[in-house]
Nucleic acid binder design. Structure first.
Lengths: 200, 200
DNA sequence: GTCTATAAATCGATAGAC
DNA sequence: GTCTATCGATTTATAGAC
């Protein structure tokens, strides 16, 4: 869902719809594979009218990446702040992250796969935000390791990479109309990450 | 590595280099974001000379997807055929898949993220090959479940999706010059998938 | 805030000489 | 098998009327 906190205050409603429609197109055909013509068609305006709301196509990608990162981070941190104990906080992170990511799957998908099309400073900024979030996650894992609730024979960095493998690729097969709702997806990821596939 | 079995016999050496160089560019800038001019520059020939070897840019993408799928399937099936027992075969699948995928990471990355740019029949063909491979993997999991070596409280379909989450996203962070070699990556994925992050 | 019209550049692909 | 030259279409973006 594209709710109010996904855009900065100075943006109007059309600019909001612009991001949502662009993200849906970018997810389906890629940023480079989507033309400004297709975006304006989706909004029901002419191509030139887009430039009243944004100053370039890349602006759309940049705003989508920032919104996607912000939503997931806000969702994860809210969930973690309500949990008590190292492994409970880790479970909460997976749950909050997954719910936010799947609620804005067009944004998350675009951010993760088309980020590379951003130029210079903008790419660096998005990468820095992503890295900061990954380090925050790694700290959750390290805390759980110190408490003896997560195995210590695999480095926290590598456990973090494996956790994001589980989280990120979900966007490629998740369908809102499919057999699983976001809560069930979050539970699956949590269960496999923590318990593994061999019976305990 | 781009070895001999990655191309069909009728292709010459230039056509082979063409695939390798194109896959590297596609991984870095995306299929839609890469121009035929960039591809010809990488080969040291003029843009028009490309069309002596391939009849369209999309041909390159199609051939890369087929080669990527074939390499991973061949690697995984060879490993599985040498293993004995349901869970040993599952471990072998992860190992063979990971080694082949990381040895041709430009090809795998391009196949998994830019497949969507294929048109009509070609997209269907690639999707069908991928689905067949996924079903073969799910059968390995089902066999291990029947033998009691894999938990039965999660459906084989969902365990398969989670396993491919672990396998596929690895392409986004694996670096040949990084701290982990393909064998270590395969062991990490196997260990987490089977045993989980909580100490046993 | 949307429109028509168009600029300026680049795209994939082709023709034909060598 | 590679080249020069070029076609026709399409691209992002701008100018200026309404």
């Amino acid at each position: 869902m594209a709710d109010a906190n996904m855009t900065t205050p100075e943006h109007g409603v059309t600019a909001n719809r612009l991001l949502v429609d662009a993200a849906a197109l970018f997810r389906g055909r890629g940023y480079e594979g989507t033309t400004t013509r297709e975006i304006s068609d989706a909004l029901g305006i002419k191509k030139a009218s887009l430039y009243h709301h944004v100053s370039s196509k890349e602006d759309l990608l940049y705003d989508i990446c920032l919104a996607a990162l912000n939503d997931v981070e806000v969702g994860a941190k809210a969930a973690v702040s309500e949990a008590t104990g190292p492994s409970a906080k880790l479970r909460a992170m997976v749950h909050g992250h997954t719910i936010s990511m799947l609620a804005n799957v067009d944004f998350s998908h675009t951010m993760l796969t088309d980020m590379r099309s951003l130029s210079g400073e903008r790419l660096e900024h998005v990468l820095q935000l992503r890295d900061t979030y990954e380090r925050w996650t790694e700290q959750l894992i390290r805390n759980a390791q110190k408490a003896g609730e997560i195995r210590k024979d695999i480095k926290s960095r590598q456990l973090t990479l494996l956790l994001f493998n589980l989280l990120n690729w979900t966007m490629f097969w998740y369908r809102a109309d499919g057999g699983l709702d976001p809560d069930q997806v979050a539970d699956l990821i949590t269960t496999l990450f923590l318990d593994g596939a061999i019976p305990r």
